[in-house]
Design a protein around this nucleic acid. Structure first.
Lengths: 235, 235
DNA sequence: ATAAAAAAGTGATAAATGTCATAATTTGCA
DNA sequence: TGCAAATTATGACATTTATCACTTTTTTAT
């Protein structure tokens, strides 16, 4: 298919530089490198669907993916984004359950596939790796619980401000304070947990209040302290 | 203090029967038993507060605790309950972060304390234990993400029905279909993520619609299929 | 380059839910 | 047991947010 291309595993990719692999030995790293295959995935390509069986995880070498759940009426709820250095899909591998999320490419991505057996044997052989994987999961759990509370208790306005700041933290701003990632209004709504129209209206309000500037999908944050205040975000 | 009493580690407590310890060897189990101290905690006793440093985890031998986060305005959001056989507080131990939730006793509980060093050394020594702990965390993460989506997309009415079914799954019904756990309306609201008054009104509606019967804090489920339908709960 | 599709934007309106005030009832403790 | 405190209950009302219908603008694919 056109949307997935096999790409050579570049020697330049230094697995050790990924936090998650920092505990591996030379040999483990070598055998890992050999068992991995890299592919280039185009925007909108779906890596795996919620409910499907996964036989491995993916390491994001480059690019951005959104990880989302599909609600009862088909509406997406974005759980998180994955970017360079992130590991995705291992939750299902470890818990031995069907995928509970869908992963879709937002910005063209280079991914390395890590077969289930390789992952589990690494966990069993290298306690340090097991520990860092566990840390990763625990952090994710903490974040998920935090966001759960926010969605339950904050207003849409507060959550939108918070989401903008979250995107700033995750993807940084460029020199002129514009969010490096550009999402559709619908995608923003699917993060915030609201209707697309509400996001559109609130973004206009934020713009009128001189908190942000809008240029198509590019969002420039011009009053971050105020956004922090609106979002009730503690730092 | 009066609310916490030390109790002897009963020989009758069979750690192996707890799923999480099923992978331990005889000796590991023995040393674990020796390093653990058991305490009795009365209702409303707080085990640890959100934001505090935890130096160990607890195994629930008996009783029920609620694990919750406190939102910006002081409102509780109940993340989950812990009951016999559950391990709590290990997330913070593993991720080496401050506690991101508060744990409070709902039904008087006997707990065994598991110091941080014991837990981490077990993880490093026994890959099977590491794996089952990881599975546990991954399952929790899956549930948290599911509930996040529900709160973001379902109505309060749907969520209340879902929560009643969740309580049924977690704590079972007694012979006459009454939920074994009794919570205040406020606690239900703190699970559903809504105002106490809304829960009160909706419970009355459910009662009028002959889905449940109310007797103080005791809730009897008399039309479960309909509750499943209302809550959009797939089984 | 252009047509079709998707996304963004806007207004009107409806529905869901929260808030506040207050009364009745239950619970827990001294 | 009895009383204070907490919880439950209910009504009136305000507010937030979703929905629908439609137009304009932007993006995408041929």
């Amino acid at each position: 298919m056109k949307n997935i291309q096999s790409v050579p595993f570049s020697d330049e990719v230094d697995l050790l530089s990924y936090e998650i692999f920092s505990g591996l030995t030379e040999e483990e790293l070598l055998s890992l490198t050999q068992s991995m295959s890299c592919t280039l995935h185009k925007r909108n390509n779906i890596l795996y669907h919620e409910g499907s069986r996964i036989n491995g995880a993916y390491i994001v070498i480059k690019g951005i993916l959104k990880i989302y759940k599909t609600g009862f009426d088909g509406k997406e709820q974005i759980i998180r984004f994955a970017k360079d250095g992130d590991l995705i899909g291992f939750r299902s591998v470890v818990s031995d359950e069907l995928a509970c999320t869908t992963s879709k490419v937002v910005n063209d991505a280079v991914l390395c596939y890590l077969p289930s057996e390789v992952l589990t044997s690494l966990i069993k052989v290298n306690p340090e790796f097991a520990m860092s994987l566990m840390k990763l999961t625990c952090r994710e759990l903490g974040e998920s619980n935090k966001f759960l509370t926010d969605i339950a208790q904050k207003t849409v306005r507060e959550r939108l401000a918070e989401v903008l700041l979250l995107l700033m933290d995750t993807f940084d701003l460029d020199e002129d304070c514009t969010l490096q990632i550009s999402l559709t209004r619908e995608e923003l709504a699917n993060m915030v947990g609201t209707a697309t129209e509400s996001v559109i209206r609130l973004l206009s309000e934020f713009k009128a209040d001189k908190l942000i500037e809008l240029n198509g999908r590019k969002i420039k944050l011009i009053n971050i302290p105020k956004l922090i205040k609106i979002g009730n975000v503690y730092i």
